[in-house]
Amino acid sequence: MGEVIEQFFASLPARAPAVLRSPIAGTLRIDLTTGNRTDHWLIELAPGSVRVRHEHGPADAVWTSSAGLFERLVTGRAQGIASVLRNECTFSGQVLLFLAFRRFFPDPPGTRDPRQTAREQAGRPA
C-alpha cells in the first residue's frame, strides 16, 4: 500500500467537519487490490465526522478499486465518478455514501474555481 494512500486515510477525520456537512451516515468499505492481494478500509461516515479502520467488515456500500487507480484519485489525477462509469472500479450499495466520500478527493492539478475566474474577468477591462 502506498504512502500517499495511507496519508489520505489518516487525514480524513481532521477534514471531515469541512467536507461532510450533509446528513449522510453509513459505512463504506474500500477494497484496494494489488495483484492478488486486497487491502480493506472501513470508513464510517456521519455528519461532520469520519472513523477510519484498516480492516475488513460489513458495510452499507463497497467500492473496489486497484491501488494504482485509488492513488490517482487521492492525488487528483483521476475522478471517482468517471472511473466508475469507465468500469475502472466497481461500486455497490448506498450510492449516497460514494457521492459523499468522493468530496474528500482533491481537484485535478491546475483546476480553478469558475467563480474566481469570473471575478478576475469582471475586474479586467474588456
Rank of each mutant, 00 (worst) to 15 (best):
Q94P: 01
V62L: 06
I30T: 06
N36F: 12
M1Q: 08
R112F: 07
A16G: 03
F105R: 01
E44W: 09
R112Y: 02
Q116P: 03
L42T: 11
R103E: 13
L42R: 08
R15N: 05
A10K: 13
A59L: 05
A10H: 11
W41T: 09
H54V: 04
D113P: 09
T33R: 15
G93Q: 01
R86I: 07
G93V: 07
R124S: 15
S65R: 03
A59P: 04
R102K: 15
P23C: 01
L45P: 00
R29A: 12
L12K: 04
V19D: 03
T27A: 02
R124H: 13
P108T: 00
V50M: 02
N36V: 14
Q116A: 15
H40R: 09
N36D: 15
P13L: 08
S66N: 03
Q94M: 01
S92H: 11
P108K: 12
Q116N: 14
Q121T: 15
A126V: 03
G68N: 07
L32C: 03
G93E: 01
I30V: 15
T90N: 07
W63G: 01
S66P: 06
H40T: 06
S83M: 08
L32I: 04
G76M: 09
L28D: 00
E88P: 07
N36K: 14
R37Q: 11
L20I: 13
A118Y: 05
M1F: 13
V19C: 04
R21N: 11
E55N: 04
V74C: 09
C89V: 04
L96Y: 06
Q94C: 00
A59V: 08
P17S: 04
R15W: 13
R103L: 12
H40D: 04
A82R: 13
L42P: 08
A67R: 04
L28R: 01
P106Q: 07
A59S: 07
A61H: 02
S11Q: 05
A126N: 14
R37A: 13
T90K: 10
G35E: 05
F70R: 02
R53P: 07
G76I: 03
G123L: 12
D39Y: 13
